[in-house]
Simulated scan of single mutants.
Amino acid sequence: MIPQRLTAAELLDSAGLLAELLADVVAGGASLGFLVPLAHGEAAAWWRGLAPAVTEGGLAVWAVLDGDRCLGTVSLAFTDKPNGRHRAEVAKLMVHPAARGRGLARTLLTHLEDAAFDAGVRLLVLDTETDSPAEILYRTAGWTRAGVIPDYATDPTGTPHPTTLFYRRLEARDPVRTPQYRSAARYS
């Protein structure tokens, strides 16, 4: 499946599905800035609150929607600072527990990287819980570990954990990764 970039209207229309995904992922141990229990209404309100940033171009959100559920999502936060327009931050990469193990996280990440490059971004940054499955994904996807901050964020139960910072330069691209050369089969 190919990730779809959501407009602000589509984000609002999909807020319920995105909220279900967020609540499931948080309940499964990934905090993403939230604590358990995460109520569906709170999660939906959080997603709806992103619509203005999507409208203004400060945030891009991609989702893989499959009928009545969201299988995965990832966001890209652009900076509005004149000296930082070449960089952006990857945020909220999530895959539904039932869709894991099929390469969807890597598909979302690759799709985001390609879109970022097409938008003129040459440096991506992100943070993730140290020793989490996400950290393994980023390392194996070619991201560079910049360092670890102890007790940076808590898990969903409120227990502090270290966070690993990563970056990725988008200077050179393999033609196979360029959108016009991709096959749909690669993303299914």
Rank of each mutant, 00 (worst) to 15 (best):
V64K: 06
A19S: 07
G103S: 08
D174V: 00
G103H: 06
C70F: 03
G84M: 13
T157E: 15
K81Q: 14
R102K: 12
T157M: 13
L38Q: 06
A8N: 11
A9P: 01
L35M: 11
M1E: 04
R69L: 12
Y138I: 03
G28N: 14
R139G: 15
S183R: 06
R48W: 01
L12P: 01
E42N: 05
L137E: 13
A63W: 04
A60V: 03
F117G: 09
G158S: 05
S75W: 02
W143G: 12
Q4G: 00
L104W: 06
A134V: 11
L165V: 15
A27T: 04
G72Y: 03
R122M: 10
V64W: 10
L93Y: 07
P150W: 04
F34E: 07
G101M: 01
P150I: 05
P175Y: 07
T110G: 15
W143C: 12
T140L: 14
R69A: 11
R168A: 04
T163I: 02
A98Y: 01
R48Y: 01
E135K: 01
A146G: 10
E20G: 13
D68M: 04
H161Q: 10
T107L: 05
A51G: 12
R102D: 03
A23R: 07
L123M: 15
T107V: 07
G158V: 09
P133Q: 02
S31R: 03
G120K: 00
T79S: 15
L50G: 01
G57L: 12
D155I: 09
A116N: 03
S183N: 02
A9M: 05
A43F: 07
A116Y: 00
P179M: 06
L112T: 15
G84A: 15
G120C: 08
P179H: 05
V36L: 08
T159K: 08
T157F: 10
V26F: 06
G67K: 08
T128P: 02
T164Y: 05
E171P: 02
A63S: 09
R169S: 14
D66A: 15
